[in-house]
Amino acid sequence: MSDLFRVEGLSKQFGGLAVSRDISLSLPEGERLALIGPNGAGKTTFVNLVTGQLKPSAGRVFLNGQDVTGLGAVQRVRRGLVRTFQVTRLFSEMTPEEHVTLTILQREGRANRVFARFRGDSAVGGEVEGILATLGLLDVARRRVGEIAYGQQRLLEIAIALALKPKVLLLDEPAAGVPSTDTPRIERALEQLPPSLAVLMIEHDMDLVFRFARRVVVLAAGEVIFQGLPAEVAADDRVREAYLGSYAHARRVA
């Protein structure tokens, strides 16, 4: 019951297609969990269900012991449940600095102010600079996002999430599209997170998974087929079968 974050029996059908099937898992404070699974296994759908972008067909989501299933996506963010997007969702005309500044102002309840300067607060400016520095984005801080490299846009996704000071952080393939020379930046950013924060990371890069995760959950065809230690996952028969493909795609509801 003391879990920071818990889902129970989460299910989702699109038409007749079951994309999530009775998923239950929980993250205690400080958890570092990797959620892996073949393409189309329903990992992103899971995140969408948890954060309120999608409505589940069944199941509940708890944050700090409170049922948040009935809350909208914004309310969940405000309670500390924060995600990044697998396909970046950024404002192409704005700069990284503006993204992070706007996020911090929002976190402090000041983003709705009409008679205030956007860049007026030096404390905010310092925090923005710190976050951008961690992710190596300082030299592109004042370029339009539409002009910077895709890998840098992925890092900005993480910067925005960090700026919200989350309690539970869901990272949807943070390293996909990031050049391998820059993945250490992601790891360093993750290492510097407050230890009490619970992180769930979806990732295909197994090296990263093994360095990051204390626990691994494998999803296949919308179902949790493995939960355990990173060291055990490769030896599991169902996991191997899933990755060979016979199990990879969502099945029709029987």
């Binding site: 954060t51 972008q53 996506a73 914004v74 963010v77 405000r78 924060v82 995600r83 997007f85 969702r89 950024l90 404002f91 192409s92 005309e93 704005m94 503006e98 500044t101 706007l102 996020t103 102002l105 929002q106 976190r107 000041r110 983003a111 709705n112 102010r113 009409v114 008679f115 205030a116 300067r117 956007f118 925005i160 919200l164």
Partner: peptide, 21 residues
Amino acid sequence: SPFGMLCRGIKEDPVRVGAMG
């Protein structure tokens, strides 16, 4: 203003604005 920047964000991607809280 911060409000004006938020509006520009909404123009481009309201889902992202929601995910910012």
